[in-house]
């Protein structure tokens, strides 16, 4: 795998307030990286620095080897919508395509961004969700290898969000690299290969969801059984034990191990459910904790 983003010792302060402190990370080709963090954590600042819209105080950033024409290969969907008066959707898409040497074919572009019926609409007359679709279309107009998406689904309805992430999956299958931030963590959970948590000015977690789950995850195990509670209470991996009549509810840090230890009793168990923590709750747990897992 080849590295397409390399950030080393990046520091950023704004008006004497430290925002990013000694950030270091690399991004490989054909990955979907989700950058998450609370509001004001510095996610957009980090993206703006990577895009050279604002400068860092120190550190180096290397994107696509910093070649002279690297903008030919990147696409950006900013958090703010682009809404120019007196221009139609088709005109702005054609204009943006004209900036690139190898743009995405126009028909593919409107198909991918679900803009088929909006081509002749004026940009400023679109709804919030439609503007997000257009911003997405503008970001992929140049057929980029690396795509930055800053809160891409904010303002979209749930159906549009589902379609949007399907499109992102399609782009991933075309070997694109996608760097995304979103507050809809359940959406990122389904698609991200890697999670980066930006907290306390630095990347405090960088790994897969499975790795985050190992650190912070608690699973809920539920079942019905006529067996006596004492049989289960002795299982070491249980962190919280509840029993009402024949219904049992355990929480555990290691669901796999717990279920394995329950194997001798499986014949006497019914309605077994294992529910893993969502990325949302993993993030909340992580944010509450004080540990530095870097």
């Amino acid at each position: 795998m080849n590295t397409i983003i390399k950030v080393e010792h990046l520091n950023k302060s704004y008006r004497k307030k430290e925002i990013l402190k000694d950030l270091n990370f690399e991004v490989d080709h054909n990955q979907i990286i989700a950058l998450i963090g609370e509001n004001g954590a510095g996610k957009t600042t980090l993206i703006n620095i990577m895009l050279n819209l604002i400068s860092s105080n120190s550190g180096t950033i290397n994107i696509l080897d910093n070649t002279k024409h690297f903008k030919e290969h990147i696409g950006v969907m900013m958090q703010s919508n682009i809404s120019i008066t007196r221009i139609t959707v088709k005109e702005i898409l054609r204009l943006t395509q004209s900036y690139y040497k190898n743009p995405l074919p126009y028909e593919d572009l409107i198909e991918l961004a679900h803009l088929k019926d909006l081509e002749s609409s004026k940009m400023n007359e679109l709804s919030g969700g439609q503007k997000r679709h257009l911003s997405f279309a503008l970001s992929i107009a140049g057929n980029p290898d690396l795509l930055f998406l800053d809160e891409p689904t904010s303002g979209m309805d749930s159906q549009s969000r589902t379609k949007f992430w399907q499109t992102i999956s399609t782009l991933k299958s075309q070997h694109k690299t996608i760097f995304v931030t979103s507050h809809y963590l359940e959406e990122l959970e389904a698609i991200a290969d890697r999670i980066m948590i930006l907290q306390n000015k630095s990347i405090e977690f960088d790994g897969s969801i499975a790795e985050l789950r190992t650190l912070e995850g608690e699973s809920l195990v539920e079942f019905d059984s006529a067996l006596l509670p004492d049989l289960f209470k002795s299982i070491p991996d249980i962190t919280d034990f509840k029993n009402v009549g024949n219904h049992y509810q355990f929480t555990t840090k290691n669901a796999e191990s717990l279920v394995r230890q329950m194997t001798p009793y499986l014949n006497a168990i019914s309605n077994l459910k294992v529910q893993q923590n969502s990325l949302d709750s993993l993030f909340v747990n992580f944010s509450k904790g004080d540990a530095n897992y870097e």
């Binding site: 895009l51 503008l138 140049g142």
Partner: peptide, 12 residues
């Protein structure tokens, strides 16, 4: 309207 930023992010 962020037209300016859009242009800055392209090879234009």
């Amino acid at each position: 309207s962020h037209f300016d930023i859009l242009s800055q992010l392209t090879p234009l």
